[in-house]
Amino acid sequence: MGEKKKKIIKTIKIDADKCNGCRACEVACSAFHATPKYSSNNPARSRIRVIHEPLKDMFVPVYAGEYTAAECMGRDKYVLDGKEYDECALCRASCPSRDLFKEPDSGLPLKCDMCESDPTLTEPLCVQWCITDALVYEEREEEVEEEEEQEDLEIGLEALADKYGMEKLIETVARLSVAKKE
């Protein structure tokens, strides 16, 4: 158990009623996370996706959350205001059951990191680019149990281990490191 610690909680308030479905958030997100920064954009790599079904009046930005190795036992369907959302549409997980929130070429999971960077942004880029104010950034202070954050590298490795098996992963890393030394 970690100690109690003050922590800034970063929140994006999503006002789906204000969303006009333009997907600028997807553009901004994928550009910010490109290497080098802003050198490319590709909504398929974005860590935010807009559920965009204009004729069903569905306009909901959803952020990529935790990677999960296993799919849920069942599937969620939400009906809100008489509108039935697709299976698992509102779920944030990068999950084996679907393509969403995965790098299109490697299949590695994507997760919103609130645009953590150095220098830090005043607010995540998707929020800055959403001038219709469907996305609004808020910070508040909370006392939380301290916990090690899982780093990007670890999340990626874990996903690879799940996909190919730990043994194969270790073998490959070993082989690669030998090859690099040579």
Binding site: N20, G21, C22, R23, A24, V27, P54, L55, D57, T132
Partner: peptide, 18 residues
Amino acid sequence: ERLISCYNCPMKCGAVVS
């Protein structure tokens, strides 16, 4: 029903008509 936009544009020149 709602004012809507084209790709990557904050303007809302169109609408869903219901």
